[in-house]
Design a protein around this nucleic acid. Sequence first.
DNA 1: TTGTATGCGTTATCAA
DNA 2: TTGATAACGCATACAA
Lengths: 344, 344
Amino acid sequence: MKIGQATIKDIARELNLSASTISRALKDYPGISDETKKKVKEVAEKLNYRPNAIALSLRKSRSYTIGVIIPEVVHFFFSTVISGIEEVAFSRGYNVILTQTNEKLEREKSSINTMLSNQIDGFMISFSKETSDFDHFSQLLEQNYPIVFFDRVPDLDGAVNVIVDDYQGAYDATKHLIEQGYNTIAHLAGPKNLKICIERERGYRDALKAHQMPIREEFILECADGTPEHSKEITRKLIANFADKPDAIFANNDMVAAGAMMACKEAGLRIPEDVGIVGFSDWQICTLVDPSLSSVYQPGFQIGSKATELLLDMIEKKISADQIQSPVVLNTKLIMRKSSKKRE
Amino acid sequence: MKIGQATIKDIARELNLSASTISRALKDYPGISDETKKKVKEVAEKLNYRPNAIALSLRKSRSYTIGVIIPEVVHFFFSTVISGIEEVAFSRGYNVILTQTNEKLEREKSSINTMLSNQIDGFMISFSKETSDFDHFSQLLEQNYPIVFFDRVPDLDGAVNVIVDDYQGAYDATKHLIEQGYNTIAHLAGPKNLKICIERERGYRDALKAHQMPIREEFILECADGTPEHSKEITRKLIANFADKPDAIFANNDMVAAGAMMACKEAGLRIPEDVGIVGFSDWQICTLVDPSLSSVYQPGFQIGSKATELLLDMIEKKISADQIQSPVVLNTKLIMRKSSKKRE
DNA sequence: TTGTATGCGTTATCAA
DNA sequence: TTGATAACGCATACAA
């Protein structure tokens, strides 16, 4: 059987003092004799006293816990974000309750409910692919729960959103390919219901326009599930179907880029000489594939840490949601590696 | 300001009943008239009543929360494990509090303390690289806190450990290389303070012995930090320093294997013709590198789910620690890909 | 069938 | 300088 933790009462009994005196002594309240304080602290030490955070939560209606809801833990980007969340939360004395939705709306809703039951102080949410209406979020906002959305964010009045500059990242990547002398740049796009993917496509299109290059719709293909297998398949067809094949590919993410890379190699195309490739996210795989993959770096850790700082500031009333200029946009950075450097 | 959640008292007031009646009605206790139940539930619905889990925790001295302590979230293996933990915990109605230690002993200890303060029902721990004595764990065990260790586990009486069969996995990998006709197999080992790494090395050695192959200590090199860069460096030297170079490499993990692969390619060695390579863990990168990397699959998700099942069973007294045959060993599986298949 | 009293651990308020 | 009491939200033993 678990041995009961010592409580304030135990200390009180041992010293023949009242619980309130113990409580005060432990927190160095004024009006307690130094002698008493000393004794109390000794006994506390001896009994291995540890304040009961649950009781404190009940008393203060504050749990010092934030709830994090993400689609999937097993995802380089999200795990990086979690790491950033963790760091800030830990250093400011908050716990992190984590749930993944596995991209299911139902899980998202039920996670919110358990977290509400657990009296968490605030939410950090990146919503699921199934989530298309945001009523469950609006309700929370109306009840004034502090929420910070990150990466996958809703278009809601009063929501605090933290995102990266997908548009600019995509623009930079495409521009880079153009500057390297590639002429026909295809885009392997992501699912259309995610804003981040739309933004990336928009950046791609605008970069082409800005350089007076034609936008060829047949070279913009959706790789909805984002797996390398799928993208390999699509790239194969892309290469086979057109006499004037594209000579560069900008992919919506690194996995998709890696798949495209495999298809190109398979077709005997040399990278970067025959085909240039740029991915998005700058995961670790970029340096491991051959040739190394150029990619747009997304500051996952910073997204997590920034979002958490905002949330905790809101919780602690250092700032209110409407004082925050939302969305907070973090910069991406193009990392040039071999896969796109035709020119040295 | 956050709008106060409705409580049992609010319902009681609205219906002119006592709090206890409400409490009972909500839980369908016998001895409450159907009519009352109906009314109570309606009002509860109307007020959007949600039980306060904190109050429940205090009352029952049970938080329905488990604490997970891992070295790093941003790590494919651990994030997979978390996913498994999450799944089981969620489905059985438990919350997961997560902290990462960043491989620091101090963080490990302080995490344990905050979790104790938060009255968590049990621990799941994979310890940090700095952790070499286990007193802080022993203390918990003595106080009968339910703990399940996974992956990185201590040698402690009464500890429940969940691990994979590293020895067998390494044995299989080495045997496979031998069977493919490789003659001199090097091993890029992990840090010696982790049991898993020792076990992998042991499996490697035993496989060589079992096939009457000499064990050459100069071909067993430690890649302590496990980065591809470091391993690339080490492999370079390995190739350069010996006239009779090894013609195969068994690496302690996939990153290390990937680094080795890069060094081999750089030296003009063909994979798998000139050098065979096998990694460990079977991360996603295995199918993305060129050639695809053979590896020993570790069931991360299952480690998480199995460990959580055991922990929750212990918490719910369905089983006690000493009834569990520890360590619980999950099977690995050799996944053969191109990097090690000299023979078709 | 319902109500009253008590306690989980802590702290704020008031009293001594 | 210290103590008694009430309250946070809920469940339960006991009474009615």
